[in-house]
């Protein structure tokens, strides 16, 4: 959570409100801040399975790293812009039972995106501050990797797959945009340094595929990340 700098007269905030005593840690008195963050996330790829009753798309865990900058407009409102590289993965499985025996194939799709969230950051609290984020994000699907099992045609054994994802420009929509929202907690460590713990969701509104066929099943990512960050206020 980047905090404001100098006091905001309109909000009745002064730089020193303690009457000569040791000042409490109040990083929201700064106007700008920059920070770094690491995150763990769970991504849900939402699509339809219609008659493919044996197919399931499972959520999958991922990680991310990012930087962000905050500009404080009021004590209770600041704006955050960031850039983060994060995985938005999912697992696909098709399990069919024949005469009591189950045969299945499955793959984990590890898709890496660069996301740029722009958030309004509403906050309350004196020392430790609670935050509510609302905004949007833009994303770009940079690369992907597939790890899984397949039933190969000739080989008797499943050789497994461990390949980079091959983009198909006819199908893949690498641009993503959506809503970003979440909650956070900012704990000041000193007058300039604070630790942020945020739970933020990126809710994709753009289909991961271009419109290339008449009857198409859309695919959307929803990524909820638990983000741990350090911010420096100035």
């Amino acid at each position: 959570m980047a905090m404001g700098s100098a006091a905001f007269a309109q909000d009745g905030i002064s730089a020193d409100t303690t009457g000569g005593k040791k000042a409490p840690l109040q990083t929201f008195n700064h106007k700008w801040s920059v920070g770094v963050a690491v995150s763990g996330n769970i991504n849900i790829m939402t699509t339809g399975t219609a008659y493919m009753s044996t197919v399931t798309y499972y959520p999958f865990l991922g990680t991310g790293i990012g930087i962000n900058a905050n500009y404080r407009l009021f004590k209770w409102l600041s704006f955050r812009v960031g850039a983060m590289s994060l995985m938005k993965s999912h697992r696909w499985e098709n399990a069919i039972t024949i005469d009591g025996n189950t045969a299945s194939t499955s793959s984990v799709y590890e898709n890496r995106f660069v996301n740029i969230p722009v958030l309004a950051d509403f906050s309350i609290g004196k020392k430790t501050r609670f935050h509510l984020f609302l905004g949007g994000y833009l994303g770009y699907w940079t690369n992907g990797h597939i790890i899984g099992s397949e039933i190969p045609f000739l080989s008797l054994n499943d050789e497994g797959v461990n390949n980079d994802y091959e983009f198909d420009s006819r199908r893949d929509n690498r641009f993503e945009a959506g809503l970003a929202y979440g909650l956070g907690l900012a704990i000041p460590l000193s007058n300039r340094l604070e630790m942020d713990i945020d739970l933020i969701t990126h809710y994709g509104l753009t289909d991961m595929q271009k419109k290339y066929m008449r009857q198409q099943n859309p695919r959307y990512n929803t990524t909820t990340m638990l983000q741990l960050g350090l911010a420096y206020n100035f």
């Binding site: 699509t47 197919v55 397949e150 190969p152 000739l154 797959v161 099943n217």
Partner: peptide
């Protein structure tokens, strides 16, 4: 290694699995 094969993984015309190696023993 004779070649590589793939199957479909979804409704999309281009929803393919990854390429899988096809070996003959």
């Amino acid at each position: 290694l004779v070649g590589y094969t793939r199957v479909k993984e979804g409704y999309g015309r281009l929803d393919y699995s990854a390429w899988s190696e096809s070996w003959v023993a």
